[in-house]
Structures are given as structure tokens and as C-alpha cells.
Design a protein around this nucleic acid. Structure first.
Lengths: 182, 182
DNA sequence: ACGTGTTTTGCAACTAGTTGCATAAACTCT
DNA sequence: AGAGTTTATGCAACTAGTTGCAAAACACGT
């Protein structure tokens, strides 16, 4: 149950319409909590029904017509409560690792091209994060908010770094294994 | 759609009953693809209906009575197909990072005790993985299967290492932030 | 004013995972 | 033999995320 809180966070940073939120979920917030526009609209409806957000008064609501939302005090309170509440980390769930484990049983045929593709994707993502870091977090800016956001970005950078290194290592192992077979 | 393939892998490693599978999902396989016993039983039923596995002939099936499964050739073929098929990596989805981002807006009050708790959990998991590595992967053993399985375990170790380091860093930031406030 | 494409919103159906509970057999203790 | 516990299997309802599709408004050229 995190999507509503992701939306509340995004709306507190800046009141937005569904489409604007969707765009922002494709960049910043979506880097660690992705959501489709369908999810977002559905959730906006629920949040409004629950009295946590409201449409900005300026516009009349109609289908196909831009409608912006802002967070109500109850929404901010709920987000603060959720943020502070203890939550267990979710166990890792990764298809690629599963495929490797399966490959130990049924063979590695055809796997390494996809490994290479993943390596490429992770390298791109890493480059994107690093560009954001250079752009948004120059050494001088360090308000508390900036430091927290930088910390989150840092996690993204380190995770992508891990994947690129691990995939590089995996590909090397693959090369050695197939060389050994002949 | 990875649970059936996780089960096929586990059953190829060793034919098992639902409960035995559940136990193994709590250890090895479950470290990167967790599943409850309910999920497993449901999926075993589907796999059998699809002709990918069958109950070992020895035992007659009855509720509350042990029933072991083995993989049929069609199941092995399906697993090989799935392993080789290209799949996109899933975008990261992490509640803790989201909470940190929210904290940048609503404040960090109450968060750091949970950060400490997570750090502890990740340290334990790391220690567990390292113990498995010492036990199951001594330097001499390196059949192709062992090397692949070791690679997977290595990913687990490196990920847990990342989290412990990142959380340690995050806690330091928190300390500095609250010191700055007074 | 009219068709065509784009923006913005949204519903409905589907898939996968989670939670709660049930039922039967087997074992254990008296 | 009977009561209570553990083992093993499983159904049903719920929750969250995904996929497919479409309607209403708007924008633009003709």
C-alpha cells in the first residue's frame, strides 16, 4: 500500500493533474516507485474520496478536462504517519537470478545475450542517474531536503553500479564455462 | 509469471512434495523468489493440469497425505525455453526509498529507528549468506552448476552489502541533520 | 464547420501475490 | 481409546499491479 503515499509525496512537492503526475512518475519518483497513468487516476479518485486530497477549486471537473489536485491537512498527516511507521523490508524477488539458477539445471544456452542486454540497460540507467546527480546536486547545495533526496539518488546509483559489476562478472564466468566445454 | 518456473527448477533439483518445496522456498530458492505454501500448492495443481509435472506414482493422492511431484519432459522444455527467453528487468520498487523521499517533505521524525532496524536485518541476512558461501562453496568445488549457483549467491551477498553500507551512510546523514537543527 | 490527431481522463478485465481459514491424516501422550 | 498437536494439503476472498481499450475535450489545418 505505497502508491497513495507516493502520490501524496509528489503532490506535496507540487500540486498536479493526473497527467502531470504520470510524467513525474516516469522520471524522479518513478525511479523507485513506478506507476501507470491508470493506477494514478484510480488512486487519485480514492484519495479524494477519502478526503486526503482535493481538486484545485479553479477548474470544474469534466472528463477529458484537466483537473489538478492538492494535498489536504489530513493527507499530510497520513503521509507523516506512514513515513514514521515501521515496515519490514520486502524479500528480494528477481527474475534474472531465478533464470540463472534454472540455467544451472537446464543449461545456459541463449542466456548470455540477454545478460549483455541487461548490462547495457543498467549502464544507461546509471549514466542517467549520474547526470541527474551532476545537474541537481552540485556540492554547494545541501539543504536538509536536498541531502535526503541526494541520499535516495545515491541508492539508485549504487544499485545500478552493483548490477553492472555483477553482470560483467557473470558474463566473464559464462565465457569461461563455454570455453571449458570446448 | 515466474513462480511456476521457480517450482520447476526446484523440482528438477529434487522431486518433492508441496511441503518440502515450501521449506526449500524458505531457504535457498526463496532468497530471491519467495512464495507461501498456498501459492505453491495452487501452482503445483496448475503445473500438473498443464502436463508439466506429475505426482510420483508410488503414492495415492488424498488430502492431508504426502504427495510428491517430478518434472516431465514438457516441463523441462518449458523451463529451458523460459530461461533463454529475453525478459526486461523490472524497475526498482522500494518502500524505504519512498519513505525517505516523503521524509524530505514531511520530516524525518521517527524514521531513524526503523532505519537502524533495517540495518540490523540486512546485516543478519548478509551473515547468513556468507555462512552459506563458506559451507557450500569452498574454493575447490567448481563444477559449472556450482559456479552458476555461486554467482547467484554472490549477487545476494553484494546486495546485502550495499544495503548495510547505504543504511550506515543514511544514519550518519540523519545524525548530522538533527545535530544541525539542534 | 469539419475531419483528424493529440491530450487528458478513466473504466473494466485480468494476473499475481497475500491473508485467513479449513480439512484430513499422522503422531504423541495419557 | 480419546484428546491434543503437528504435518500436509488446499480453498476462497482480498489486494495490488498490469493490460487493453475508449470517451471527452482540445488543437490545428482546410
Amino acid at each position: 500500500m505505497s502508491l497513495p503515499h507516493a502520490i501524496l509525496t509528489a503532490l506535496l512537492e507540487k500540486p498536479s493533474s493526473g497527467l502531470e503526475l504520470t510524467r513525474r512518475f516516469d522520471r524522479s519518483i518513478g525511479y523507485f516507485w513506478s506507476a501507470t497513468h491508470q493506477q494514478i487516476y484510480r488512486e487519485l479518485g480514492r484519495l479524494e474520496a477519502d478526503g486526503l486530497i482535493r481538486t484545485l477549486p479553479a477548474e470544474q471537473p469534466a472528463r477529458g478536462q484537466k483537473k489538478s489536485y492538492e494535498v489536504l491537512p489530513a493527507g499530510r498527516a497520513e503521509l507523516a504517519r506512514w513515513t514514521a511507521a515501521s515496515q519490514d523490508p520486502k524479500p528480494l524477488r528477481d527474475v534474472l537470478l531465478l533464470r540463472l539458477r534454472a540455467a544451472a539445471v537446464v543449461g545456459t544456452a541463449g542466456l548470455d545475450s540477454d545478460l549483455r542486454r541487461h548490462l547495457d540497460l543498467h549502464r544507461r540507467q546509471l549514466a542517467e542517474y549520474e547526470a541527474i546527480e551532476r545537474r541537481d546536486f552540485p556540492p554547494d547545495r545541501d539543504s536538509p531536503e536536498d541531502r535526503l533526496r541526494h541520499l535516495v539518488l545515491r541508492a539508485g546509483i549504487d544499485l545500478e553500479t552493483f548490477w553492472t559489476q555483477w553482470l560483467t562478472h557473470a558474463l566473464k564466468e559464462f565465457a569461461e564455462l563455454s570455453a571449458a566445454e570446448g
